[in-house]
Amino acid sequence: MSIEEIIKQFEPVQHNLLNILHALQDRHPQNCLTEQALDETARYLKLTKSSVYGVAKYYTMFSLEPRGRYIIRLCVSPVCELLKANQIMAVLEKNLGIRAGETTSDGLFTLELSECLGQCQEAPSMMVNNEVYNGLGEEEVQRVLVRMRRRKKK
């Protein structure tokens, strides 16, 4: 789907801006918003560039930098911290060879921190794109990563 086709699914009103940015980002192979996408959105909604840019830069789910195919968002809420999210972080960093905010060189994973994901009944938690993984231990994390890598090969 082209940027134009994605945008045109929405009515050209400013209050659709966040929904449009989500749609554009979700359909981008690198999970990000390109300058072209922002530019076309601004023109479609009759907004200035900065009105769109400022919104894209405000909300943490949006990224203007290219990211991995899978975005891992590890919850760092007080609950997850209490239940050793830091250990999960160590496992992720070691396995992926990157720090939070970075993308693996194969372009597969981006590791991010998230505020409370609202999964506190089974902390610690993380999301990989739109899927939630709860009650994480080292093994679970390794399993998820293996599964994601395998998906890529398919």
Partner: peptide, 9 residues
């Protein structure tokens, strides 16, 4: 209609 947040408490 549904409006989506995008990461802002």
């Amino acid at each position: 209609g549904i409006k989506l947040g995008a990461g802002s408490y």
